[in-house]
């Protein structure tokens, strides 16, 4: 990745990454490391895995996720994150908003010609 890309990406991530976490939790409950692995898979959504934890703390504080301890077959119990009703509503509101946003950005970029 070109230096500087990461700061651009971190601006783009702001306000979006939260919903990616909610979306990952929509299928099933997950623990931190699992979420971190999913989100850093392509290096776009998240660069450092550590930043996931402040984000999860905020989501819990907002009442969008809850946490519970579950036994693990390999090692100590794990803190699992689950989507709440409020989190589910937030996610369903984000989906159309994101589509609009994405389309608008695509349209704006397309009108300037494909220089990339």
């Amino acid at each position: 990745m070109v230096p500087g890309d990461d700061s651009k990406l971190s601006h783009l991530r702001r306000g979006v990454l939260e919903y990616c976490v909610l979306a990952l939790l929509a299928g099933r409950d997950r623990y931190g490391l699992e979420l971190a692995r999913e989100l850093t898979r392509d290096g776009v959504l998240m660069s450092g895995e550590g930043t996931l934890y402040p984000l999860l703390a905020r989501l819990r504080k907002a009442g969008w996720v809850t946490t519970s301890w579950q036994e693990s077959s390999e090692g100590p119990p794990r803190r699992y994150y689950a989507l709440t009703q409020a989190g589910s509503v937030a996610l369903s509101e984000f989906r159309p908003a994101w589509k609009q946003f994405k389309d608008a950005v695509d349209t704006a970029l397309a009108t300037s010609g494909d220089l990339g």
Partner: peptide, 21 residues
């Protein structure tokens, strides 16, 4: 290294929730 610098984690923690940022 995969976690990233502690300062970056702290920065994210102080960055705040979207509604209040």
């Amino acid at each position: 290294a995969e976690l990233g610098p502690a300062a970056a984690v702290a920065e994210e923690a102080y960055a705040g929730w979207p509604a209040t940022s």
